[in-house]
Design a protein around this nucleic acid. Sequence first.
DNA 1: GTTGATCGTGTATCAACGACACTTAGGTCA
DNA 2: TGACCTAAGTGTCGTTGATACACGATCAAC
Lengths: 228, 228
Amino acid sequence: MRAPNETFSYPYPHPAVTTDVVVFTIRDGRLSILLVERANPPFAGNWALPGGFLDIGEDLDACAARELEEETGISGLYLEQLYTFGATHRDPRERVISVTYYALVPLDALATPRAASDAAAVGWHAFDALPPLAFDHAEIVQMAHRRLVAKLDYSTIAFGFMPKTFTLSELQGVYEILLHQALDKRNFRKRMLSLDLVEETGKLRRNGKHRPAREYRVKHPERVEIIK
Amino acid sequence: MRAPNETFSYPYPHPAVTTDVVVFTIRDGRLSILLVERANPPFAGNWALPGGFLDIGEDLDACAARELEEETGISGLYLEQLYTFGATHRDPRERVISVTYYALVPLDALATPRAASDAAAVGWHAFDALPPLAFDHAEIVQMAHRRLVAKLDYSTIAFGFMPKTFTLSELQGVYEILLHQALDKRNFRKRMLSLDLVEETGKLRRNGKHRPAREYRVKHPERVEIIK
DNA sequence: GTTGATCGTGTATCAACGACACTTAGGTCA
DNA sequence: TGACCTAAGTGTCGTTGATACACGATCAAC
């Protein structure tokens, strides 16, 4: 496609542009994020966010989706732009501007990532027990987490973690994990139902040796994320 | 500094990176933004946001501040990152990624901008009567406005428009302009004073042939922007 | 000293939120 | 088959925050 020794020249120096994605999910009751183990320098052997260099004819959103798919096999997520990081020495190779995104994966989506391209391994890591991360990715993860928690208050972002159908107890569990605190069952249900965002499927879900729970679904899955 | 015909080469194509800044103020009772008239193609003669190309050794925030100062003479503002725009054909010359910022100027700051560098003219334009803008700058302005209005609800961002001292009526006026609606005087004062963010200077301000108003100042000017 | 203009103040009602405990339904097992 | 275990599901009351609303006080101008 491209001559081996071809180069691209500009009258002024240009930085490289990358995208990086923070993918959240909840696994085994813990908030977790998706990391790839770097196969190549710099930071070979370290864990990092999935991401990579922007193709010159590609939109930023498309780049984030493509790199995520290439490195982890996960696709079809709704990616929201988070922040752009551009400190001068954040990458030892050259000047790199990183446009970062975040996304949520439902609990059930059997998102078993597979390593590919320049990643040695891929895996979910509990947010409160992350390994050391390459580049400034720890900072990116922190910002994504702050954004996620802030959005719980004024948006329906938590539904991003829910499978197609779920029980109110499961939904409450997601909030409790994200907020790090127990919630009152009656108040939680009152608030959720008054928002008029979920509806009963009519089915019951049997989860153990006790009374079965009513199953719910989101009423307007397309416009989750609306501000309350 | 640089040899005239020097070029910078990379094994892969690199986009250019720019910063653009949306500066808000309130003039004559109208929300206004700062625009520069472009002296050079593309879009020569059109109005655009102040901004320009990132220097290779410069942080993004510094670039935004520098370009703003160079093109308008305004400096010392607190710039907050807004969003990064990178659609493939947003600049006809080459692929350009723009990291955008926004900032607020107090009403009194005699911010008389002066044209410089590659700007033919500089001026304030009422937000509800903007001229056609170059590139995708209209979209950037819309996003900045949405962010500004959203932040009114849960932050102290409105103080960014206030001079060192002000009256509660002036502060109320700012809110009314931004929110596009009249507010009840008693309720507004109750809420503002209960936040414990302003204090009386002890002075009175005479503004006309009527009872003078008490003068206030922000209590902790350094940490304006805190979430309520 | 009357007029005009803005400043500054209090109360009553309603809605939203938080605290709080028991009954119901199904599964399990003796 | 009935006793028991476990999570599901439900209502009230008090507190707090938001909204609606009207008039006297103060200064300048005449």
